[in-house]
């Protein structure tokens, strides 16, 4: 079985590859190539020894160690009437998949990468299997493990040929990457944009939540925007980040992009404190990979307690207020 890993990072290329490689190991591929349509600098990229070669996009065309004779030509007829970045990548990958006879593509999920991967699946006539968190053996068969029914269920679907797997892995491969793989270049197809113009505005950094070592999350029980502001200040002092549940964000207590849970960010911090959330499965999907999970809720029967390492029965906004006071006093003490 021929496998291709597709990573679309804007930064942290190695981390992306590690996420994918951890899953690829479970697939026992005969051959595995790595596709990097948008990586800007792959010249010195170290990869696991199981990667046979790398296909890179146009920005790396000048890479010094490009494998001789392997600058493939983009065929004519690529141009279509629609498509932005995602469709360019999809066409680029389609070309590679056909050229190399790839059976399974394993891509990383993300706004643009998921769209590319889904478009790729359509172009190839493959099935899109998305939301894969792990590869598990089920009846001896490697299966894509996914969440279903708002994270109440794990769903296992056999991994077969002609699938594009779109992964949101929770684990990261930590072994050594000590090989260099030959790099081959395929220029991006020239595709007209499918919009008239695009403006880009910055927004608060949701990505800092995903990478935070300490995460503080406010649910409906924090009762208002004031407590969320405090959470952000506390998180700042402790070197962490603050997010909120979808319910709290809908109430307008904090921005939507800081929503933690199935419909937002899935974090895996060393420690996570959840204030005033009941523990609905769809929310827990965002915090359950925390190494240490601490719940603060005034309802002793809140289901979140049984899903946490530590439980504290308390009124969330008051506890947050006191916490901030303690930390301010500590600051003053140090100053």
């Amino acid at each position: 079985m021929k496998l291709a890993l597709a990573a679309f990072p804007s930064a942290h290329l190695e981390k992306s590859i590690r996420r994918l490689w951890g899953l690829a190991l479970g697939l026992n591929a005969d051959k595995c190539s790595l596709w990097l349509p948008s990586a800007s600098d792959v010249g010195n990229l170290r990869v696991p020894s199981g990667i046979s070669h790398i296909w890179a996009g146009p920005e790396t065309a000048s890479a010094a160690n490009c494998e001789a004779g392997f600058v493939a030509n983009c065929e004519a007829g690529f141009a279509t009437n629609c498509g932005g970045f995602a469709i360019k990548c999809a066409i680029w990958m389609e070309h590679l998949a056909k050229m190399e006879g790839v059976d399974i593509v394993l891509a990383e999920s993300g706004a643009a990468s998921s769209e590319s991967a889904i478009r790729l699946s359509y172009r190839l006539g493959f099935s899109a299997v998305s939301g894969l968190v792990d590869v598990s053996l089920f009846n001896g068969m490697p299966c894509a493990k996914m969440r279903a029914a708002s994270s109440h269920l794990d769903l296992f679907r056999p991994i077969e040929k002609n699938q594009v797997l779109i992964a949101r892995p929770s684990k990261i491969y930590s072994g050594n990457f000590d090989s260099f793989a030959p790099i081959r270049i395929l220029p991006m197809p020239d595709v007209e944009a499918d919009f008239i113009e695009e403006r880009i505005l910055p927004r608060s950094k949701a990505s800092s939540l995903e990478d935070a070592q300490l995460l503080l999350v406010g649910g409906r029980g924090i009762k208002g925007p004031a407590a969320f502001k405090r959470l952000q200040e506390i998180a700042g002092k402790l070197g962490g980040a603050a997010g909120l549940t979808r319910a709290a964000a809908i109430n307008g207590w904090g921005p939507m992009e800081l929503v933690v849970g199935q419909s937002g960010i899935a974090a895996s911090p060393k420690a996570c404190v959840v204030f005033g959330a009941s523990g609905a499965a769809a929310f827990m999907a965002g915090v359950e990979d925390s190494e240490r999970l601490i719940a603060v809720n005034n309802d002793p029967d809140a289901p979140i307690f049984s899903k946490s390492d530590y439980g504290i029965i308390a009124d969330a906004p008051s506890a947050i207020e006191r916490l901030e006071e303690i930390l301010s006093d500590a600051d003053k003490g140090c100053g």
Binding site: A148, L153, D154, F156, E288, L293, F305, S306, S308, D309
Partner: peptide, 15 residues
């Protein structure tokens, strides 16, 4: 397709 109920329970220490 196979389904499995998720069990997110942890051993909880109430403080």
């Amino acid at each position: 397709l196979h389904f499995q109920a998720r069990d997110e329970r942890r051993e909880t220490t109430m403080l």
